[in-house]
Amino acid sequence: MKIECSEIRFSRDGFNLRADAEFCEGLHVITGRIGSGKSTLASILAGTEKPDTGIVIKEGISSEILSMQFPEYHLTHMNLDPEIRSWGVDAETVLGIAGLICPEEKDPMTLSRGELKRLHLACLLQKKYDLMILDEPFSSLDCIWKRKFKDMMNEIDEGVRIIFTHEKRVLPEYTNLWTISDGLLLRVE
């Protein structure tokens, strides 16, 4: 099970991104400053953005998820219960994990960004994916919730997991650390 980006080149409005990398099973953390191209690379790896040149090769991956930085985009229902069920998971369990004490008919858009992020991560981490691409999963979370989700991520031991983040203090145990510097993806030794 692996994902490989071969000679990826992406350019937009003076911004250039280059990536040649192989992500094997385990947890990979990709860091970089804001605007360095993390979200773009996440989209390219997930197949939602096409590179100018190069290809993304996925081997042995039958299920995948791209968790976007802004959890609002993942909402497809107007009540918590159908929203959680749309992920194919149990509403009660998810609400418990996310620490949300609210009626199941509540509109998820009335939750704060942090609550929404907790809800989204709780839904996502209830499922098993061969490939998980998480774009800034710790944004909008306080230290306590960052650590809780970090611990939950540490418990997952299957599949390829790639976390794009500029968070430096709270990180799960990773297999490889990568960085995007001057538009180039590099592995940190």
């Binding site: 997930a46 939602t48 995948e64 998820i65 791209l66 976007m68 802004f70 985009y73 993942h74 909402l75 497809t76 229902h77 749309s86 992920w87």
Partner: peptide, 17 residues
């Protein structure tokens, strides 16, 4: 972005959604 999120849920954007 929303359409992408829906496709990752394994669904298509139907009229109901």
């Amino acid at each position: 972005m929303t359409r992408t999120a829906i496709s990752f849920k394994g669904k298509k954007l139907s009229l109901k959604e």
